[in-house]
């Protein structure tokens, strides 16, 4: 369970399966070494994810990968959707592609806040723990990120 979300978090930062695996493994190892400093009673998952995300960010920086992250989304209709027309399918896929592109173009702090909050489905407090910032900072990064995305993708896009 933690292994999956740790790898997913690392992949969202690095967009490289190899780097994500390295980051997640290194994060687990660091967590093991730091376990004695883990404060009992505090939620474990954000603490672990914070270490993994930090490892992933370090790897991304050390590789000087300043290009936008190259995430891909499934180009398929969601289960349970009514069968859309071909035009609607194309438009929906195009919007998802543009949305993902727009997320990829966000400044890193906003992108990580968006990724933690929406792609990993963490709540704001967990996101704050993972990113090592205050909940208020998460709120403002999310708000700025969402505002950017709305500018990039108007409702009729």
């Amino acid at each position: 369970m933690h292994q999956d979300i740790a790898f997913r978090a690392a992949y969202l930062v690095t967009a490289s399966a190899e780097d994500a695996e390295e980051a997640a493994a290194a994060g687990f190892l660091k967590a093991q070494r730091a376990l004695a400093r883990f404060r009992p009673g505090k939620p474990f998952r954000p603490w672990l994810l914070a270490i993994v995300v930090n490892e992933a960010r370090n790897r991304r920086r050390s590789a000087s990968r300043h290009e936008r992250i190259g995430l891909r989304a499934l180009a398929q209709d969601r289960p349970g959707d009514a069968a859309p027309s071909p035009e609607a399918s194309v438009l929906a896929a195009e919007r998802r592609r543009r949305l993902l592109d727009a997320v990829s173009e966000l400044p890193e702090k906003q992108r990580l806040a968006i990724a933690c909050r929406y792609f990993l489905d963490l709540d704001e407090a967990e996101t704050a723990n993972v990113l090592g910032v205050r909940p208020g900072t998460v709120k403002s990064r999310l708000a700025r990120g969402l505002a950017h995305l709305r500018e990039e993708l108007p409702d009729d896009a």
């Binding site: 292994q3 997640a24 949305l99 997320v103 929406y118």
Partner: peptide, 27 residues
């Protein structure tokens, strides 16, 4: 008006992420 947050959650569920490798086994 579109619900952007909902769109992002749905997008997150559709992201193509490679299968999680068994990196813990290295330990």
């Amino acid at each position: 008006m579109r619900d952007l947050e909902r769109e992002l959650r749905e997008l997150g569920a559709e992201l193509v992420v490679p299968a999680t490798p068994d990196f813990a086994a290295r330990f």
